[in-house]
Design a protein around this nucleic acid. Structure first.
Lengths: 209, 209
DNA sequence: GTATCAACTTACCGATCGTTCAGTAAAAGT
DNA sequence: ACTTTTACTGAACGATCGGTAAGTTGATAC
C-alpha cells in the first residue's frame, strides 16, 4: 500500500504533536492569506507564521511563492472552464444555456470561494497573471457569445449591447466573492436563484404583476 | 498674489526644461500606478520613474506613500458621500431616490475613475484602509436603506432581501471600474442608462413587451 | 544496527523596500 | 548684492523581501 496519509491522528510524526503538512493543506492556507492581505502583501514569512512553521518548511512543499499562485489559479480556472464543457452549456436555447452557465458560475464561486476570489483580484503584473487573465477573458467571451445569440433569438433585450450586458452580469456575479459567507443564512441555491431573478427580471415590481 | 502656479509653460525652473511638479500632478500619476500594479506592488522607485524624477523628489511633495493613498481615498469617498447630500437623494419616492443615487454613482465612478478604482480595490490591511472601507460600508448601508424603503412601498421586488439586492446592485455598478474606458464608444450617460435599465428591468425580453 | 528518507530547523544571502539626509542649483524676495 | 525659498539630486539607512544551504530529527527499510 502507498501509505494513505489522510489528515489522520495528530502526533503522526512525533515531532511536536502535529501531523506534517501536505501540499493541499499548505495551498489552502496560502490562498486564504493571499485573499486576506493581497498576493503581493503576503510575505512567505507571514505565510509560515500562519502555518505554524518556518519559511523554509514552506519551501519544502512548494518551489516558490509564484508556484502557490499558479496552483491556486489553475484550480479556479479549471472549474470555470469546466462549466462550458457540460451539456447544459452546449445544447438547448441560448437563453436556457445562459441561465445554466450563470447558475453554474454562482455555484463554482461559492464552492471554490477562496480560489476564485484570488483569480478575480489579479492585476496582471507577471506573465503568469496575464495568462490567467487571458483564460478568464476567454470564459467571458464565451458567455458574451451566448448573450449575443439570445439577443438574436429575441429572448434578451436588444437595447443594451451584448458586451455591456455581459460585463454587468459578471460584475453582479463576481461581486459575490466580496461578501458571500458560506454556511450563513443565505444558501448557495437561494443565492443562485436571487442572481438569476435579478439578472433576468430586475429589481422593479411591474404594475400588474 | 498667491502665485497662481498652473501647469504653465515648460522650462519654468530652467533645471532641465520641465516645469516642477505640484501635488495634484504627483497624485494623479501615483493613483494611476497604484491601479496598474496594486498599491503594495507599486514601489516609490517605480513611481519616481514614472514621474521622471528620483525617489527623494517625490518625498518633497508628499510625506509618505500612505499619504498618497489617503489623499486619493479622501477624494473618492468625498465624491460618493456627496451624492447622498443632494436633494435628489433626500426627497421624493424611495424608488426615485434610489434611481438618482445609482445614476449618480455611475457618474462619480466614470468621472473619478482612477480614484474610485483605488478605493474599490482596498483590502483593509492598514488602519487607514480600514477607515476607508468603513466609510464605503456606510454609503452602502444608506443605499440599502433606500432599497428597503422601496420594498416597503411595493416598488421593488420583495422576493429578494434588501441586503442581497443592494450587494448585487453595487456589484454591477462597481464592476464598471474594471472595464469602462472614458472617451470610448460608450458614453457616461448611455452607460448610466444601461445600468438603470438592467438593474430595474433585467436582461429578459418579456412576452408582450 | 546501520542506512535511508521525509520533514523539517537555524542561519544566512543579495535584492529591494520605504524613508531620510546632506547638499545644491535656480528663482524669488528684499 | 545678499538671503531665503523652492525643487530637487545622490547616497545611504535599517528593515524586510523571496529564496538557499547545511545540518538535525524521528520514523522506516533492510
Amino acid at each position: 500500500m502507498t501509505s494513505s496519509a489522510e489528515t489522520a491522528s495528530p502526533g503522526g510524526n512525533g515531532r511536536s504533536g502535529r501531523a506534517p503538512y501536505d501540499l493541499p493543506a499548505v495551498l489552502d492556507i496560502a490562498v486564504a492569506a493571499f485573499n486576506d492581505y493581497g498576493y503581493d502583501a503576503t510575505s512567505m514569512g507571514l505565510l509560515a507564521e500562519r502555518l505554524g512553521t518556518s519559511k523554509s518548511a514552506v519551501y519544502y512543499h512548494v518551489s516558490s511563492k509564484e508556484d502557490l499562485l499558479r496552483l491556486a489559479l489553475e484550480r479556479a480556472l479549471g472549474e470555470l472552464e469546466g462549466i462550458l464543457e457540460q451539456p447544459g452549456a452546449q445544447t438547448g436555447a441560448a437563453d436556457e444555456r445562459l441561465t445554466f452557465v450563470l447558475r453554474s458560475a454562482v455555484r463554482v464561486l461559492t464552492d471554490e470561494l477562496p480560489y476564485v476570489t484570488l483569480l478575480l483580484r489579479l492585476r496582471g503584473n507577471t506573465e503568469l497573471e496575464r495568462e490567467a487573465l487571458a483564460r478568464r477573458r476567454a470564459f467571458d467571451n464565451a458567455v458574451s457569445a451566448l448573450v449575443e445569440q439570445a439577443r438574436t433569438d429575441g429572448t434578451v433585450r436588444a437595447d443594451v449591447d451584448a458586451r455591456t450586458t455581459t460585463r454587468l452580469l459578471f460584475g453582479m456575479i463576481n461581486s459575490i466573492v466580496e461578501w458571500y459567507k458560506p454556511g450563513g443564512a443565505l444558501s448557495q441555491d437561494q443565492l443562485a436563484d436571487d442572481v438569476i431573478t435579478v439578472a433576468f427580471d430586475g429589481i422593479r415590481v411591474h404594475p400588474g404583476d
